[in-house]
Design a protein around this nucleic acid. Structure first.
Lengths: 270, 270
DNA sequence: CCCTCTCGTTGCATAGCGTGCAACGGACAT
DNA sequence: ATGTCCGTTGCACGCTATGCAACGAGAGGG
């Protein structure tokens, strides 16, 4: 709808892959370099980009500032952070917090494990829907009609031998997750890593986020992974309480919940 | 230089403070609401913003993605992260990694302390130059001429009774920092918190970043804070080694350094 | 139940502004 | 010294972003 803005956003996307020169940008975005130059200058004026050396541009500090400020505003993230951190410290494994938004599952927080096995995840990254435990948890909470719609438009890229690659199996898996109250990724996403995830609920009982634990297989076998489930559920229960959910049993209440910070929970919470 | 883009960036800045309606944005940015609507649509198309409910817009996931990808690209951050984490775990205090760019000092990484005293810092945020330990460390490494220029254009906002509020005192402080090899913020920034910081150097001996430890005064008195300096210096020495600096004594070398990851350090590193 | 007020949305006509072109100039290498 | 590569600038054209005004949906009050 706005040509120049759209081009500028394309430039930002390109710069995310690393510093670029003016010419490189002009070519990949397919815009005359003088135009790119002027857009970059505007971006530079607000420090959305900065020059690393006379001929290379890269993303600037405003972007970091915006992103982290916005992340803090996400209610769930702030409320759940202590539990997430505690889970990371007690298990010493990598833990993620993810939420569902507009058809996608996004990592909104993360604490790395003590064992520095590089994992391909990052705050802000979208999680594949068909092969991650967090996505299964979040999708399992949706109406079945929505699940079907989503299941039919997924690409089902095969990442490992264990990856689920068709809608029928996936829907069955979601049903199992809903019944179990937690989800497993049995090395379906990355060959050597498996995960368990469980939902975080708000005062209305709605699933607002998912917490997962990721473990290298060489460190813990599948039964060992399942052994982490009670600890995971303890964390998600506590996290749900922080989000206003009633402590135990006794289904959702109608009134407005109070969380541990004394602030009232907002319906808008993601 | 580009009107529509500039307005769009202003909108993003506004949205960083929380969800806004179309009218609110139109008013604060001072643009006709139909124009704002069209800009928002373009931003929405690339998920730089998304609607939280039918009438509220907020920052979208692309922004998080871009920011964290760009952060990972910052060499120093990736190289130093293990040391920063280790320092956080051994001291149990809040630790920051900051770097100097284009006249500003920016936090590029952070691990919160175990004691949940809320601190007003955040990745991507600019650190005040006159009252933070990291800024003192980074500025103390600049040529004296640059220091003078910077010292004369600082606002010297008084944050606490201890804040340095004039160029002369500030330049003297920088000289002391350069001589000591570390900097102190004696509750100059926030009333109840004091910090120590030290520089991280690359293969050429250039200061590429600063690491700080922040401690509530009620938890540790000033002498106790200074007692952390050896541990801090141990961390920054290790961090410098990771950045390619030669392990000990023997000033900077001329050749290209090798860091622990086996990659050669880049001159571009911030 | 209707009225009104608010706020998001759309169509349209204007001209402001972004665009591409071509030429300039500095840096670097041959 | 000469050539090449890239960033930069001035300019004229016309696309496209803009403001206006009217429409419409939704909420709240009378």
């Amino acid at each position: 709808m706005s040509q120049s803005l759209d081009r500028a956003l394309a430039i930002l996307g390109e710069l995310a892959d690393g510093p670029r020169t003016l010419d490189q940008l002009a070519e990949t975005v397919d815009v005359h370099k003088s135009t790119v130059l002027r857009l970059l200058r505007t971006l530079e004026g607000r420090q959305f980009v900065q020059r690393s050396d006379p001929r290379h541009y890269r993303l600037g500090v405003t972007l970091f500032d915006l992103a982290s400020r916005a992340l803090e505003d996400r209610d769930v993230r702030r409320l759940v952070e202590p539990e997430l951190r505690a889970l990371n410290e007690s298990t010493r494994h990598t833990v993620h917090l993810a939420s569902y938004e507009a058809g996608e599952v996004v990592y909104i927080d993360k604490f790395d494990g003590q064992h520095s096995v590089r994992m391909y995840s990052r705050i802000g990254r979208r999680a594949p829907l068909h092969c991650t435990a967090v996505a299964k948890v979040l999708l399992a909470a949706l109406p079945v009609a929505d699940q079907r719609a989503i299941a039919n438009r997924i690409g089902y890229e095969r990442r490992t031998p264990n990856t689920i690659t068709n809608p029928a199996d996936y829907l069955a898996e979601l049903a199992k997750v809903a019944a179990d109250g937690y989800a497993v990724d049995n090395a379906e996403h990355e060959e050597f890593i498996h995960c368990v995830a469980a939902p975080v609920r708000d005062a209305n009982g709605a699933v607002v986020a998912a917490i997962s634990i990721s473990v290298p297989k060489m460190m813990l076998d599948f039964d060992g992974l399942l052994g982490l489930v009670p600890e995971l559920l303890r964390a998600t229960t506590a996290a749900s309480a922080d989000c206003g959910a009633v402590p135990v049993g006794a289904g959702p209440v109608l009134g407005v919940g109070k969380n541990t910070l004394g602030t009232t929970t907002q319906g808008e919470a993601i």
